[in-house]
Nucleic acid binder design. Structure first.
Length: 514
RNA sequence: GCGCCCGUAGCUCAAUGGAUAGAGUACUUGGCUUCGAACCAAGGGGUUGGGGGUUCGACUCCCUCCGGGCGCACCA
């Protein structure tokens, strides 16, 4: 990247001091600027005169800053090479991880969308990414569903009936009317001691998984590995028991870990809690991918402190397997609705499927456009932030939106199709270079998004690019009398490639037409 | 009570300690017999929650107050 060449040049003159070379805030200030003269308290003119960078056509002193203007040849690179900052690294990304038996709600979608985009950014940056899903197929949630099925007599192969059963069980547990029975079912399911309940669980889990995999297919996710709580629970419980006295201690009949705060790993009935299941999960994950460098876990932000303590405990249990490795939790925000107008077949919880169905109708029957819309909404702001979802506005699909980006891409592709039959001339249009001057920053935006694990940087960039392309498109006539300028043709090609690749990194579908 | 996160235009969101804080949306107006109008052009809209501090420079860092969210022992 040219930015790195500028940095090296400056460093050669002023030494290793913390200056920045960054994208200028407006095209009036060049393509890059540096504050190197300011932070080193040297004369900007003297510094500027010492700099000579390949691809930079003009170096301008503007008060405290030095601005760099790239030459035209440097503006359209033959290929947009993404820095391979994760080359040689194996990174597990765990995301989606829903409760089976419970209808998949929009919250599950957010984790999937964020996790998938992070996985793609890491892959593009050289990492060997392992996508991991960790569905909950046992525990209190499932016990509530199984109890519910015994009451409603619902068909466990019907996803709607499962949702109803869970609601029935949850309500009865909360008001205390069936707490004892549901706890009993919970224990029985772990021990596999009641064939009837175990069978209901097995059938319900299969139904939920089928729907989960269909939804993931629609969203563009394929997991490398799935681990289940039914595996991790007993495994984790065993590991925790072996570490009583060293890592864990017994307290009030439970087995706890005292870290930043105290957490229960085995409850007083001896059953593994979520915490112990994480211990078992780590055992499974680290055996499946022993050479991993980083393990990312994407879940709701409310679990942040929980994971800080659990990772702490895991490092103490497995010092050899965690040495030099990075265990990191990534928060996704909550989804909040401005009103409850969205239709839902499962009561007041908006399911992932009903949301997609409603959006697809708004997108004139196009599911890929609907997927683009919801993904854009999730990926346009910083990852941990709550997402305020206004159903009516989200259904409009205009302006700052997934379909806006898709539309710009579709236009570029239509243009290229038409240009394939046109005569290419050598004429170079000398007009505005704004589009080129945005394009040049694509690799560094991807680099930053991948480094910070923040896809929204890319979303913002692509929106800016699409807006400039649309604006340019409206002002310029590209194909005139069956001819197109060679320079313009390559410009449109780079726009198409960049939008297409960028949308792909966000997990947003890239339609040929719409 | 302790801890973490958040507060930017009416609304939804950007902004790597740097130049005049930017988009979209909503509202007003204009543009399709011309490469795709899910588009484009123009307009108004701000004490970045309040106050103090650090800095050549603060939406960004520190302190404090106000407002909101989340977590803190047997749910996940």
């Amino acid at each position: 990247m040219i930015r790195e060449r500028i940095e090296e040049q400056i460093r050669a003159v002023v030494g290793d001091v913390p200056f920045v070379v960054a994208r200028a805030d407006s095209v009036a200030h060049g393509d890059y600027y540096t504050n190197a003269a300011l932070v080193t308290k040297t004369d900007p003119k003297a510094l500027a005169e010492k700099l000579k960078v390949e691809g930079v056509e003009q170096i301008e002193v503007a008060g405290k800053f030095i601005n760099f203007y790239l030459s035209r040849e440097a503006l359209i690179p033959a290929e947009q090479k993404i820095p391979q900052q994760y080359a040689g690294k194996t990174i597990m990304v765990e995301y989606t991880s829903p409760n089976l038996f419970k209808p998949l709600h929009i919250g599950n979608l957010i984790g999937n969308i964020l996790g998938e985009s992070i996985a793609r950014l890491l892959e593009k940056s050289g990492a060997d990414v392992k996508r991991v899903n960790y569905p909950s197929d046992i525990g209190l949630t499932v016990a509530k569903g199984v109890w519910g099925l015994t009451q409603t007599k619902g068909d466990p192969s019907d996803i709607v009936a499962l949702g109803e059963a869970y609601k029935t069980g949850h309500a009865a547990y909360e008001d205390g009317s069936a707490k004892v029975q549901i706890d009993e079912i919970n224990t029985a399911l772990y021990e596999n001691s009641n064939p009837k309940w175990s069978e209901l669980r097995t059938e319900g889990v299969a139904t939920s998984r089928k729907h989960l995999s269909e939804l993931c297919k629609t969203l563009g996710t394929t997991f490398d590995k799935e681990f289940f709580e039914s595996e991790s629970g007993l495994l984790g419980a065993g590991i925790v028991r072996e570490s009583i006295g060293t890592v864990f201690e017994e307290s009030e009949g439970a087995v706890v870990y005292r870290g930043a705060h105290t957490r229960v790993f085995l409850n007083s009935r001896g059953l593994p809690t979520y915490e112990a299941k994480e211990v078992g999960l780590f055992d499974l994950k680290s055996k499946a991918y022993p050479d991993f460098d980083t393990s990312l876990t994407v879940t709701g932000g409310e679990q942040k402190d929980f994971f800080a303590v659990v990772f702490d405990a895991i490092k103490k249990i497995f010092p050899d397997r965690t040495a030099g490795k990075n265990l990191q939790h990534i928060s996704n925000g909550f989804l909040k609705l401005t009103n409850g107008k969205m239709s839902s077949r499962l009561g007041n919880v908006i399911t992932g499927e009903s949301l997609l169905a409603d959006l697809t109708v708004a997108a004139r029957g196009r599911e890929d456009v609907a997927v683009g819309a919801i993904k854009y909404t999730v990926l346009k702001s910083g990852s941990g932030k709550d997402i305020i979802f206004d159903p009516e506005r989200s259904l409009s699909l205009e302006g700052d939106s997934g379909p806006y980006l898709q539309y710009a891409l579709v236009r570029a592709r239509a243009l290229l199709r038409k240009a394939s039959g046109a005569t290419v001339t050598q004429f170079i249009t000398p007009q505005s270079k704004t589009l080129e001057r945005i394009l040049i920053h694509y690799p560094e935006v991807v680099e930053r998004a991948a480094r910070e694990l923040e896809p929204h940087h890319l979303t913002t960039f692509l929106t800016e690019l699409a807006a400039e392309f649309n604006s340019w498109y409206a002002a310029e006539r590209v194909i005139v009398d069956g001819t197109i300028a060679g320079y313009t043709l390559s410009l449109v090609k780079v726009v198409e490639r960049t939008l297409s690749q960028g949308l792909n990194l966000l997990g947003i579908p890239t339609p040929e037409e719409m």
